[in-house]
Computed example of a mutant assay.
Amino acid sequence: MTWLLPPILVLILLILMAVLARLWPEPGLLSDPWHLLGLVPLLAGIALPLMVSRLFRRVRTNINTFRDPDVMVADGPFRISRNPIYLGFALILLGAALLSGAAVALLPALAFVLITDRWYIPFEEARMSAQFGAAYDDYRRRTRRWL
């Protein structure tokens, strides 16, 4: 399923989230105006992938999940998380769930974290380890997967 790039999955889950929140608005997560707190993770989540995208362009490596990595990047947001793009996507989904106000909207956000943690990340880590060997394994030991 190489067509299911992470941004496509996020878009599908955002649509699902909107449908679920519309069908089952209760129980609510946060009442008005507190649901606007969802803007904080949403905006942080947008910022992380944009920062990483700029970093990848600067070091001339590809960003596509299913292509071989060109360069091992361990600076910028990668000092804190091995997966800042996925962390950003999870924050986008969390923020959208909070903004929707419906508790059921958290389910797609949780689904994203589980799918990413069990499918995308292991796939990428195996390729990084094969490509960069001990350097990547050392980075992996000292840097957390998410936060």
Rank of each mutant, 00 (worst) to 15 (best):
residue 129 S to C: 05
residue 85 I to K: 10
residue 110 L to M: 05
residue 81 S to E: 03
residue 105 A to C: 07
residue 76 G to V: 06
residue 137 D to E: 15
residue 138 D to N: 15
residue 137 D to L: 14
residue 63 I to F: 15
residue 131 Q to F: 04
residue 94 L to R: 15
residue 141 R to L: 12
residue 80 I to G: 03
residue 80 I to N: 05
residue 108 P to V: 00
residue 58 R to N: 01
residue 44 A to Q: 06
residue 87 L to Y: 04
residue 88 G to I: 09
residue 46 I to N: 06
residue 77 P to V: 07
residue 93 L to A: 12
residue 105 A to T: 11
residue 65 T to S: 10
residue 124 E to Q: 10
residue 80 I to S: 03
residue 106 L to Q: 03
residue 105 A to N: 11
residue 74 A to V: 13
residue 92 I to F: 10
residue 96 A to M: 12
residue 67 R to L: 14
residue 117 D to F: 10
residue 132 F to C: 12
residue 88 G to C: 06
residue 100 S to R: 07
residue 60 R to G: 00
residue 56 F to R: 08
residue 135 A to S: 11
residue 138 D to F: 14
residue 97 A to H: 10
residue 119 W to Q: 07
residue 94 L to K: 14
residue 91 L to C: 10
residue 141 R to I: 02
residue 99 L to A: 05
residue 116 T to V: 08
residue 111 A to I: 11
residue 82 R to H: 05
residue 115 I to V: 11
residue 119 W to D: 00
residue 73 V to Y: 04
residue 44 A to T: 11
residue 94 L to S: 14
residue 78 F to C: 05
residue 135 A to C: 13
residue 95 G to L: 07
residue 131 Q to E: 12
residue 52 V to K: 02
residue 40 V to N: 00
residue 132 F to Q: 12
residue 114 L to R: 09
residue 37 L to C: 04
residue 53 S to A: 10
residue 90 A to C: 03
residue 116 T to P: 01
residue 75 D to G: 09
residue 115 I to P: 02
residue 43 L to G: 04
residue 73 V to M: 03
residue 57 R to E: 00
residue 111 A to Y: 01
residue 116 T to A: 13
residue 88 G to D: 01
residue 86 Y to P: 07
residue 60 R to K: 13
residue 111 A to S: 01
residue 144 R to D: 08
residue 136 Y to V: 15
residue 130 A to M: 06
residue 117 D to S: 13
residue 137 D to K: 14
residue 142 R to G: 11
residue 42 L to I: 04
residue 93 L to D: 14
residue 97 A to Y: 08
residue 112 F to M: 05
residue 133 G to P: 13
residue 143 T to L: 13
residue 94 L to E: 12
residue 50 L to P: 02
residue 59 V to Q: 12
residue 94 L to F: 11
residue 43 L to T: 01
residue 104 V to M: 06
residue 62 N to A: 06
residue 87 L to S: 07
residue 123 F to C: 01
residue 41 P to I: 02
residue 43 L to H: 09
residue 58 R to A: 14
residue 59 V to G: 06
residue 131 Q to K: 04
residue 114 L to S: 00
residue 96 A to Y: 14
residue 129 S to G: 09
residue 109 A to G: 09
residue 137 D to W: 10
residue 42 L to S: 02
residue 121 I to E: 07
residue 100 S to K: 08
residue 112 F to H: 06
residue 133 G to Q: 13
residue 125 E to W: 15
residue 80 I to F: 08
residue 136 Y to C: 15
residue 81 S to A: 02
residue 97 A to V: 12
residue 41 P to W: 01
residue 144 R to N: 04
residue 82 R to W: 03
residue 66 F to A: 09
residue 144 R to Q: 11
residue 91 L to T: 09
residue 107 L to H: 01
residue 126 A to F: 04
residue 41 P to Y: 01
residue 140 R to G: 14
residue 53 S to L: 08
residue 71 V to Q: 09
residue 119 W to N: 06
residue 74 A to Q: 07
residue 108 P to I: 00
residue 96 A to I: 12
residue 106 L to W: 05
residue 120 Y to W: 13
residue 90 A to Y: 08
residue 37 L to Y: 02
residue 129 S to R: 12
residue 129 S to V: 10
residue 75 D to M: 02
residue 51 M to N: 05
residue 120 Y to N: 07
residue 139 Y to I: 15
residue 77 P to C: 08
residue 122 P to L: 00
residue 79 R to W: 03
residue 129 S to A: 13
residue 70 D to A: 13
residue 125 E to I: 13
